[in-house]
Design a protein around this nucleic acid. Structure first.
Lengths: 231, 231
DNA sequence: GCTGTTTTGTCGGTTGGCCGACTTTTTAAC
DNA sequence: GTTAAAAAGTCGGCCAACCGACAAAACAGC
């Protein structure tokens, strides 16, 4: 099996690309945009203008930016099967953004917005699917805003673990265990508090038996219990 | 000129719809979705599932929801020419949402997501434009999250007035005056603080000569000065 | 023009979470 | 297996913003 074939198969992991024919897929010129990145390597960095879309085949990455003091502000963390990059199909990100591999090695393939738009022009059904995908992101951002504005740190952490649970859950079981690819500092940045307070409240949630957070894994004994906490 | 004609012309105010032909426009069945709403009336309320897209022809509205104590949480405020409703083209808003007219009478026209999708299928270029529009919203939400997470109330207010300025500005002049359709309480909700602190800091910004906030109008003497405040 | 209601202004008491600062634990590198 | 670096845990002082409470001002309805 050549690289293009394997890309085709892997891309089809995502429900958006499942609709693509082999020919359309090769028109995306993914091969040239294929990469293997080690831990801590950047996929892109400080690029104001980035006209690519990326598909994370394997591993974990974080998207963020740096403020003028050099502190990182994490926007989101992505795992296998996620799409990132120029989702808006249009330039000037406004802020300089980076995408960095965390925890383990990652495999990413990418294609240009230009190539993608060319296919969308031929496949309006796909354009609609894509819009719905972007729409999902909007809902996620909106509920995050609500969480940050109206809840205290503990409640925000609960929200965050629920979010993670939905992201990582494959089966429908109420218990969930998955590999932990986040440090306290990263959780803090995502939740909007300092590292110290994140540590304090993660431990508090552990005491209450709502989550188990170790360096190696995160275990949520009962998603429904966590959800009832959030009301 | 009949209603349909006038709708066509008004819809074309928006750059998204400027690309539509008269025929396509009438396929949206806007007429049946036309409405005139007085101050404080709801366009929709507590609808979990709403499969319509709305176009605000005239007036101002606020989008939000109520928490279990009954306090309103304003998500955003829209003015003439804005599109709202099921931008994600897909159901279950997750949260119950309302859209309410503020300040003065509003004119709204609407069409179903179904009709809209039918046109997008025929006009993929429009689908791409629409995706870019939704993409803009994402950028707005992301910068709002950054603002809330990393800045204090005063800086957030500055950000908010800059946002308003960009929204209301028609010419390129550095000074800007526009009708005020917001109360302190509404600004507070949008910025993420209590009414009292909003009042305090709006007055502080007035003392510094950065904004002029009266019940009737908002004046920004120098947008560039405000922007340099925000860094 | 009077009157009830909404909006705005102001002020202390209280507190959630920040900010160093430092220690302990875990991980990675050689 | 030693050692340096990174991550996690803990604590006291401090302050931004909340909260309740009330008064003044502006507006809307009749």
């Amino acid at each position: 099996m050549n690289i293009e074939d394997s890309n085709f198969i892997l891309l089809r992991q995502h429900r958006l690309f499942r609709q693509l024919t082999y020919k359309e897929c090769s028109e995306l010129n993914i091969v040239s945009g294929f990469m293997n990145k080690k831990k801590n390597e950047f996929i892109y960095l400080n690029s104001l203008r980035n006209d690519r879309l990326y598909f994370l085949k394997k591993g974990y990455i974080k998207i963020g930016s740096y403020d003028k003091e050099g502190n990182e502000k994490i926007k989101e963390v992505l795992s296998q099967g996620d799409i990132f990059g120029q989702l808006t199909l249009e330039g000037d990100t406004g802020e300089q953004e980076f995408a960095q591999v965390i925890k383990s090695e990652a495999q990413i393939c990418s294609f240009t917005v230009e190539d993608f738009e060319r296919i969308l022009m031929k496949r309006p059904d796909l354009a609609i699917s894509f819009t719905k995908l972007v729409g999902l992101k909007i809902k996620g951002l909106q509920s995050r805003i609500t969480s940050i504005m109206y809840k205290d740190v503990k409640a925000r952490l609960v929200d965050f673990f629920i979010y993670l649970a939905h992201k990582e859950r494959k089966e429908t079981a109420d218990e969930l265990v998955f590999k932990n690819y986040l440090t306290h500092a990263e959780v803090a940045s995502l939740v909007g508090c300092t590292r110290q307070t994140a540590t304090t409240f993660i431990n508090k949630l552990e005491e209450e038996g709502l989550v188990e957070f170790t360096r190696h894994h995160i275990r949520i004994p009962s998603i429904s219990k966590l959800q009832s906490m959030a009301n």
